[in-house]
């Protein structure tokens, strides 16, 4: 599993929809169970291009870590444990880029 490693490949070539979908997939399927035990409430920043991530209790610090490790990019961000996947497979969602 990709972790808090070094990478110069950022998520910049992905569209917002792709960052959203891939970020959620990586978070829910690969990271959430493990990170909820050790980093609940902290901010997770995922580089969806490489599936690498950084974690910090402070969002600004997490973004700084992400930039340092992955370069400038467009990342998926979530507060660990704050969102849950709907068991019914349906969840109302509002997207920032839909006016």
């Amino acid at each position: 599993m990709a972790g808090e490693g070094n990478s110069s490949t950022s998520s910049g070539r992905f569209s917002p929809d792709e960052v959203s979908q891939n970020g959620e997939r990586i978070y829910f399927e690969k990271l959430k169970p493990e990170l909820e035990n050790s980093h609940r409430g902290e901010f997770l920043v995922i580089n969806v291009a490489t599936e690498e991530y950084v974690v910090d209790a402070d969002k600004l610090a997490a973004l700084d870590k992400a930039e340092e490790k992955f370069g400038k990019g467009f990342f998926y961000i979530v507060q660990i444990g704050e969102i849950q996947k709907s068991l019914a497979g349906f969840r109302k969602k509002t997207y920032a880029w839909q006016f």
Binding site: G23, F75, I77, I83, Q84, R91, K92, K93, A96
Partner: peptide, 13 residues
Amino acid sequence: DGLQDTSLADGSI
């Protein structure tokens, strides 16, 4: 820098 998912009190994202 990116996009963030946030959960609201009504369960929506």
